[in-house]
């Protein structure tokens, strides 16, 4: 295979572009990955009776695997395509309506969340399950809700406390996804050593 030569060799040399070719490819591919994880059937729970998708797992993984900047850019890329009208959000949602609705804050939270997950994982000395889990909980759950709840409260007019109670229904799923993010990130780092390129670059 290609080994690690290509991916590790780039990056540092090309300072003229904010995003070199390897970065651009990873950002674009992960934007698509988050979209695909939001498609129904990516997780069959009770024979697809419960429409649970793995989209938020995709957001956490973008941060954990790509790092803060590229992870946030991947989410931003997905949101730009959604804003342009492509139905790439979980449940086939898309268009500008999702940015006017109650979910708008969560979408912004996805960008901030991926960034924070990436920031925390980049700071880990070693990619461990617990370390990534903590990053996913803080960034992928905490930051996302911190951005999402106030906007939902503002748009619906429901006080923040009640809005928070309403959103508790989604919390178990998101906690499970944080666990999944930690497991997947550790396994991916092992299976594909060039995966967490952002960490090895400075070495």
């Amino acid at each position: 295979m290609t080994e690690a030569t290509g991916p590790t060799g780039t990056g540092t040399r090309t300072a003229s572009r904010a995003l070199d070719a390897a970065d651009a490819a990873r950002v674009a591919t992960f934007a698509a990955l988050i979209a695909v994880l939001g498609m129904p059937g990516s997780l069959s729970l009770f024979g697809n009776a419960v429409p649970i998708t793995l989209q938020t797992l995709g957001v956490m993984l973008a941060g954990a695997v790509l790092g803060a900047r590229r992870g946030a850019l991947a989410v931003l890329t997905l949101l730009a395509l959604v804003a342009a009208g492509l139905p790439l959000l979980a449940g086939g949602r898309g268009g500008l309506g999702v940015f006017a609705g109650p979910s708008a804050g969560y979408l912004v939270g996805f960008v901030a969340g991926a960034f924070v997950v990436g920031l925390l994982v980049e700071r880990l000395r070693r990619v461990t399950f617990l370390g990534v889990l903590l990053a996913a909980l803080v960034g992928g759950v905490g930051v996302v809700y911190a951005c999402g709840l106030p906007v939902q409260a503002l748009v619906t007019g429901v006080p923040l406390t009640q809005t928070a109670w309403l959103s508790l229904a989604f919390l178990p799923g998101d906690l499970l996804k944080a666990l999944a993010c930690a497991g997947v990130t550790v396994a991916v780092a092992r299976a594909y050593p060039a995966a967490l390129r952002s960490r090895t670059r400075e070495d």
């Binding site: 490819a25 674009a28 992960f30 994880l37 793995l54 695997v65 060039a194």
Partner: peptide, 22 residues
């Protein structure tokens, strides 16, 4: 098994991305 689905998918995506970058 979410991991049995997501791990090969993410690794496949990374290979795809790095080939595209090259």
């Amino acid at each position: 098994d979410v991991r049995a689905f997501a791990v090969p998918l993410v690794v496949g995506a990374l290979r795809q991305a790095d080939a595209l970058g090259e």
